[in-house]
């Protein structure tokens, strides 16, 4: 009980909440990207994968609920900490300069809020079908039964250059967010010692870049007509 109180109420404890929820969300982003990259393996691969997820509620729903809990913990804690940070300096300096801080570090709250807005948009688009309602109606035959044609949904969705532009910009901000966040989580948990400091910083930047390139490859390939 005391441990939970220390973790959820202290300044350092809430950084652990940020770090652990952030780390799990980071792993989800990698998994999500790998799943979607199956679009390059062909229509059947992607549709079979999507059908497997949909047809396995014992996997789908715990993952959905878990992600929602993680996202709420990450966002609520971030906003709480940010409000406290503003309160800690009621009167700003004349001409604010922040020393030694990377752009990604300074923009972490902004990039996070944009990514949040993007997640809402992304869910409305491909999960709830509010952006392109016809997207959820495409079907394809799979093992003798009609299943949702996710491949066609993605191709149609990203053929719209405006929608693709939104995705590309948001992936840029996600990349920026992760390039600081992934290295920061090691520091917050106390695992970033001088011996690993540079390696962890590089790992964060490289993994953020891989996620950016991997996710952007899909709309770019569709816009260029490489995936039809």
């Amino acid at each position: 009980m005391k441990t939970l109180k220390l973790i959820f109420l202290s300044s350092l404890g809430r950084k652990y909440v940020m770090a652990i929820s952030g780390a799990l969300l980071f792993l989800f982003v990698i998994g999500h990207m790998l799943g979607n990259l199956q679009i390059f393996l062909g229509k059947d691969f992607l549709n079979a994968y999507a059908h497997f997820l949909k047809a396995t509620p014992e996997l789908l729903w715990p993952a959905r609920i878990g992600l929602l809990v993680l996202a709420i913990l990450h966002i609520v804690t971030a906003v709480q900490l940010a409000i406290e940070n503003r309160r800690a300096r009621p009167l700003a300096y004349d001409g604010t300069k922040i020393y030694a801080a990377s752009f990604a570090a300074q923009a972490i709250l902004f990039s996070g809020l944009v990514v949040l807005a993007f997640i809402v948009y992304h869910l409305l688009h491909f999960t709830f079908g509010k952006i392109q309602p016809e997207a959820l109606t495409y079907t394809v035959m799979y093992k003798g039964e009609p299943i949702h044609d996710v491949y066609k949904m993605m191709v149609m969705g990203f053929s719209n250059p405006w929608i693709s532009a939104i995705y590309l910009i948001c992936m840029g901000l996600l990349c920026l967010h992760l390039s600081h966040g992934v290295s920061s989580l090691f520091q917050s948990l106390g695992w970033k010692t001088n011996a690993y400091r540079n390696a962890i910083d590089k790992f964060a930047k490289i993994s953020a870049l891989i996620i950016f390139l991997g996710n952007c490859a899909i709309p770019v390939a569709i816009l260029l007509g490489l995936v039809k």
Binding site: S11, L12, R14, K15, L81, E84, N85, R87, A88, R89, I98, Y99, A100, A101, S102, A105, Q106, I108, H180, S183, S184, Q187, S188
Partner: peptide, 10 residues
């Protein structure tokens, strides 16, 4: 009432 660390290194 100090703020929270965001690991920026200033």
């Amino acid at each position: 009432g100090f703020g929270n660390c965001t690991n920026i290194g200033s």
